[in-house]
Design a binder for these strands. Structure first.
Ligand code: FES
Ligand code: FES
Lengths: 157, 157
DNA sequence: GACAATCCCGAGTAGGTTAGTCAGGAAAGC
DNA sequence: GCTTTCCTGACTAACCTACTCGGGATTGTC
């Protein structure tokens, strides 16, 4: 009864990525260290890093001195990138999920609620796409750094 | 793996409320009619109307010719009002849920992800609070009618 | 080449949540 | 008293979440 939730996959994933962001350039960080830095279960975290690697957000090296590191600069990876890998499409209802079969929603036309779900979806996406890992590291409050696609950004909230 | 979801409670609830909004002033509408109008299960819908009544959003009359009707004008009821009754606080993670025990999140200070959850929470709340049932009924697209508390509203997305 | 440190992958699982159904009781009008 | 409606709580099947666990594949070091 209290949804509109981001699951632990997304939450832990973002926290793990900030660890890699903070140590960007230091070479590979083992999962053990990432988990310890944020107090997460190592074996669970391993499950999250797999998808992130396959999606190209992080790279890995095996063997001693191995670990994970960010594939791009912290300022170039948005929270939205991470969440979409771990949580799937950021849509509040299946009806307005652009990636799934259209026709999934039979009453699309004339559904009075549809409009607001689209607004929520776009709003959430705009926020998470506007915040980079770099933004999370800097102490300052942010109200919309990292303009989404060249547009001069005012408040994205 | 595809959360950030609003459950059927919230979805059906909003759709049901638009039915009442469309027939505002027509006297009580029986659950049967509401369910039929949106193709919902009658007995499930009854479960949603209970909370909405207790929250003061709708009123009911029993007996023949009874049913439910909106307690306020459609323009005065926001989608957020409905969702908060049926879904609970609209917070993407427990950590930033203002209603629950503070101290629930032990790593509040220095948690790098916290900032973005707050932004998402506020963004979602702003959107759903800015859209009234009336707005859903009118055919026109909306990008932020119904200024939230007197502020001249630009785009709320 | 042995060994150890890592990544890597899939299976399994306890508990909780969701989306309902169902049976029956309480008001209200005729 | 009969019917219509609201109203409530108990119940349930299916699904999902948040993990753990066991073991295999790579790679560097001695
Ligand atoms: S039921 Fe699919 S958009 Fe409303
Ligand atoms: S763990 Fe609670 S705010 Fe990040």
């Amino acid at each position: 009864m209290l949804p509109v939730k981001i699951s632990t996959r997304g939450q832990y994933g973002v926290r793990a990525m900030t660890v890699l962001a903070a140590r960007y350039g230091d070479g590979p960080i083992p999962v053990r260290d990432i988990a310890a830095a944020q107090g997460l279960s190592q074996s669970y975290l391993e499950q999250l890093l797999g998808p992130l690697r396959r999606a190209g957000l992080v790279r890995s090296v095996r063997g001693p001195e191995g670990g994970y590191y960010l594939a791009s600069q912290p300022s170039e990876v948005s929270v939205g990138d991470v969440l979409r890998v771990l949580e799937g499409p950021l849509s509040p209802v299946d009806c307005v999920d652009e990636d799934s079969d259209p026709g999934l929603c039979s009453r699309e036309d004339g559904c009075p609620a549809r409009k607001v779900w689209v607004m929520v979806r776009d709003s959430v996406n705009r926020v998470v796409d506007s915040v980079s890992l770099q933004d999370l590291l800097s102490g300052e409050d942010l109200d919309g750094r990292r303009s989404v696609d060249g547009a001069a950004s005012g408040s994205v909230l």
